[in-house]
Design a protein around this nucleic acid. Structure first.
Length: 545
RNA sequence: GCGCCCGUAGCUCAGGUGGAUAGAGCAUCAGCCUUCUAAGCUGAGGGUCGUAGGUUCGAAUCCUACCGGGCGCACCA
């Protein structure tokens, strides 16, 4: 509805000789400033060198709007123009919510844009930790936002199954197998000490028999390597699934080696003159493309650095036809961004092709003190422990409620509390309460129709709640554009607060028939928006709690 | 030393591409209340937006320097 207003204002700007000026049409924070406001007059004042308030008067004079949209206009403060929308307009917005239903808040501005979002991509060397959980929630949340705004989204997990880390897991697991049959054993230098490998060793012996431990060491290690890979990947998938995260594509690093993509890409880089040799190693001239130093692709011992397969991987994504790729990385990898960006720039990809969302550390707190580790991993809190303790909804919500690039305190006491201090509980409770109205009335929410008289919503709380509902599409658009799911949780908490207040103040059932009908429609619309926000973030919207 | 992120109320944090008196929750204080599901509701106090400059009609927001915290600066992955 503010779009029509924006266009009308743009026409005025053009007629006043300021075609294409950049001005804002917004919902004022303060209800005393109307339903919609613009700074157009102040922007024009700069161009026209005239007092903003005088310009504002001329803008209002020239404004050509259809009848029945705006009820009142005023000039305020330094030169803002505030608009109060007519009641029919609010009635229309109630209808818009109910008509769109589960699609209310969706957009199509991303139509035709193919986006690949890769997240978690944990090494298959052990359990996932809470940082992976945050990456999973954020990646999945961004993916959902992009899908909600019409983008064609692929969720992807990259398996680092080719490096030395996985070799060490194989050696460590073989050591655990030896330990399990009572022989001397040693976890190798740089190996993995967590208890989970003892569990895996026991599983292998149970399945393959004790003779497995008698294999020649080289073969035993090789088989352990393959088995560990499968077992750890299964565990990770299980943990992610129990957390509500699923992938469209799993990509194996090893597969790039197997099909010869590594030397092929290397040859491409060399043929384009992007490389040089120094000290027996082959370097990528990334400084020519914005990096602060050149980077090694092939070490002097002939093996590749991790950088090269990573370039190959991004080239692969490009060749698969994606317009954009978004990588969700932990903060400890942020220094890696410039070199990857430089490499892709060198290959001629547009800068907007590649972007990284960085997730900062998660600090887990219980009783105000930091929880440092869980027994099974031996060194960190696992995602599994966290989800088992607080449940998938609270886990996801807490991971999403802060912007990704700020550190997060995950308060276990708060996440498990059944009070309104717990934001997940508070938002879900709002949905349950509104649902409860229909349960008590003995009617389905869908039976409440939008053909109601708006003046049958007499309380200020009615109007405030309705206005908040109409803001949801803007919130989803901004959250998607900025890739910030926390904007949704913040909105949901505000909406839940208004919903609880409305619920408390405004009775629905037993009111005069006109009012009851109108409030049932408002309750239905509120339920729709709360549910859409929650499901968008991968959370449940319970009808009772 | 260099780079990235962060610094907003006692605490945890929001603050559209610069806009109107900087917001919310918790905590504190003062009243009220027990109702379609929560021990709930209403109000109050509390801020030099890390510091100092700059840009502008206007800066928490943009620029510069500095201070404090986190992370990263491999022929590791």
């Amino acid at each position: 509805m503010s779009e029509a207003l924006r266009q009308a204002l743009a026409r005025v700007a053009t007629s006043m000789g300021a075609d294409g000026v950049d001005f804002v049409v917004e919902r004022p924070k303060d209800a005393g400033h109307g339903d919609v406001a613009t700074n157009l007059a102040m922007v024009l004042a700069k161009v026209q060198k005239a007092p903003p308030r005088a310009i504002a008067a001329r803008v209002i004079e020239a404004l050509d709007l259809p009848a029945g949209v705006v009820e009142k206009t005023e000039i305020a403060g330094p030169g803002f123009i505030n608009f109060w929308l007519a009641s029919d307009e609010l009635g229309n917005s109630l209808r818009a919510v109910i008509d769109a239903g589960p699609r209310y808040g969706a957009h199509d501005f991303g139509k035709g844009i193919r986006v690949n979002i890769e997240f978690v991509s944990a090494n298959p060397t052990g359990p996932l930790h809470v940082g992976h959980g945050r990456g999973g929630a954020l990646g999945d949340g961004i993916a959902a936002l992009l899908a909600w705004t019409g983008h064609q989204v692929t969720r992807e997990f990259y398996i680092n199954d080719a490096g030395v880390q996985i070799d060490r897991v194989g050696q460590s697991l073989w050591a655990r197998v030896q330990e399990a049959v009572g022989r001397p054993f040693a976890i190798p230098e740089g190996g993995y000490h967590g208890d989970y490998l003892k569990e895996n060793a026991a599983q292998i012996l149970a399945r393959e028999g004790r003779a497995f431990a008698d294999l020649p060491e080289a073969e035993g290690v090789r088989r352990c390597r393959a088995l560990a890979l499968v077992m750890q990947r299964e565990e990770q998938d299980h943990d992610l699934a129990s957390f509500g995260v699923r992938y469209d594509v799993m990509t194996s690093e090893q597969a790039f080696y197997d099909r010869g993509a590594i030397p092929a890409t290397l040859a491409l880089l060399e043929s384009r003159g992007l490389t040089f040799e120094r000290d027996g190693a082959l370097w990528f001239r990334t400084t020519d493309f914005g990096d602060d130093q050149d980077r090694v692709l092939r070490k002097s011992d002939g093996s590749y650095t991790y950088f090269l397969p990573d370039i190959v991987y991004h080239v692969d994504k490009h060749e698969r036809g994606f317009d954009r790729v978004i990588d969700v990385w932990g903060a400890d990898h942020h220094g890696y961004i410039p070199r990857v960006r430089a490499a892709l720039r060198a290959l001629g990809y547009p800068d907007e092709f590649f972007d990284v969302s960085v997730v900062q550390l998660v600090k887990v707190l219980r009783g105000g003190a930091e929880v440092k580790m869980s027994k099974r991993s031996g060194e960190f809190v696992t995602l599994r422990d966290l989800v088992e303790e607080v449940g998938p909804d609270a886990a996801r919500y807490f991971f999403l409620m802060r912007r990704g690039d700020a550190q997060l305190n995950f308060d276990l006491d708060l996440a498990t509390s059944q009070t309104d201090e717990n934001p997940v509980f508070y938002v879900q409770m709002a949905h349950a309460r509104v649902s409860g109205i229909f349960r008590v009335a003995g009617v389905a929410p869908d039976s409440a129709t939008a053909d109601v008289r708006l003046d049958a919503l007499p309380a200020p709380e009615d109007r405030e709640l309705l206005k908040k509902l109409t803001a949801f599409p803007d919130v989803t658009a901004r959250a998607a554009r900025d890739r910030e799911p926390h904007k949704i949780t913040g909105y949901l908490e505000e909406l839940a607060r208004l919903t609880h207040g409305w619920y408390h103040k405004c009775r629905v059932l037993g009111e005069p028939p006109e009012v009851e009908r109108a409030r049932l429609a408002l309750a239905r619309a509120t339920r729709i928006v709360l549910a859409n926000g929650l499901t968008l973030l991968g959370l449940t919207a319970p009808d009772r709690m």
